[in-house]
Amino acid sequence: MITVASGEELQTRPQWADPSAGQARAVQPGQVDTAHGVILYLEDIAVSFDGFKALNNLSLNIDVGELRCIIGPNGAGKTTMMDVITGKTRPDSGKAFFGQTLDLTWLKEPEIAHAGIGRKFQKPTVFENHTVFENLELAMKTDKRVFKSLFFKLDSEAHGRIDAVMKQIRLDTHANRLAGLLSHGQKQWLEIGMLLMQEPKLLLLDEPVAGMTDDETMRTAELFLSLAGQHSLVVVEHDMAFVEKLGGKVTVLHEGSVLAEGDLASVQADPRVIEVYLGR
């Protein structure tokens, strides 16, 4: 790592972010180097749509195993940020790296997913006419080529993996239940379980508790806390009570850049955050 002075702050940059190091080397998906402790690095990301700056020199670091909450008013750039990370949107400028060497701006969406970034949208998407077990089996990280898929047989190791994830998302007693019969919260957990079957290193979760009951929200917080450390999680959320349950660092976005960062109490007390977000 290289430490670069910027004003009165010290910013930690990976080796490839040093201008003297030249262009970052393209690597194959799956070769994610997190030896230096940072799994996601965004620097000066800019995205414009018809003259509107959705992201304005956004810089953000996510550590390995970290659970980070992203908050901010509508239009702050939260969704666009996730679109850049997953390859759905190409930035006009800036750097986006997964680990030390994987340049996200050069990869397509399937390649980024294969590299180990999983994304969950607000509305759950599950196979409603299949059981919970079958949904997780379909999502399993396997060779998806036609011949391999036709002759795929679930072995004891794969079965055990599905059982473990079902228990983790608290749906082990619903293994043979059709996904369409689950509650809204249970469908959310199932989709998270489907992401976990892909063995992601980084999970992006967009408003995961929207529409949940209080009990489901509490269970979701417990699930995320159990995943932190094993995975890195970036949670975009408006529910401040849920964010408080998760603890950890909170990043506030406003007009496409970071407005404030710290624990929830400190950002809630920040006059700028109160003015543009919490005070509304």
Rank of each mutant, 00 (worst) to 15 (best):
N61F: 03
A210L: 05
E9H: 07
L181C: 07
G94S: 11
M166V: 05
V32L: 07
I39A: 03
Y277T: 04
K144R: 15
A260S: 15
V146Q: 05
F242Q: 02
I162R: 03
E275S: 11
L227S: 08
K123R: 13
L264N: 04
D263I: 13
Q100V: 03
V276D: 01
V4W: 05
P29G: 08
F97T: 14
L178G: 10
W16L: 12
A241Y: 05
I85F: 00
L203I: 10
M140E: 06
F151H: 01
G160I: 03
G256H: 05
S266R: 11
M81D: 00
R272H: 11
V250K: 02
E222R: 00
L104V: 08
L182A: 08
I62T: 13
R219W: 05
T105A: 11
L55E: 01
L278G: 04
K245F: 03
G279L: 09
V27T: 13
A260Q: 06
L182P: 01
M212T: 05
D92W: 02
P14S: 11
L203K: 11
T86F: 06
N57M: 09
K120C: 15
I169L: 08
P200E: 10
L225C: 11
E199V: 00
M197A: 04
L102E: 01
Q198S: 15
L40E: 06
I70L: 15
C69L: 04
V132G: 02
P19G: 10
A24K: 12
V4L: 13
G87L: 08
V165P: 00
H36M: 14
E261T: 14
P200S: 12
K123L: 09
Q186M: 10
T86I: 03
G247N: 11
T220I: 01
L227T: 11
Q11P: 00
A175D: 08
F49Q: 02
E134V: 01
R280H: 13
E222N: 09
D155L: 00
V32C: 06
V273C: 05
V47L: 01
E255S: 14
G22A: 14
T89R: 12
E43D: 14
F98N: 03
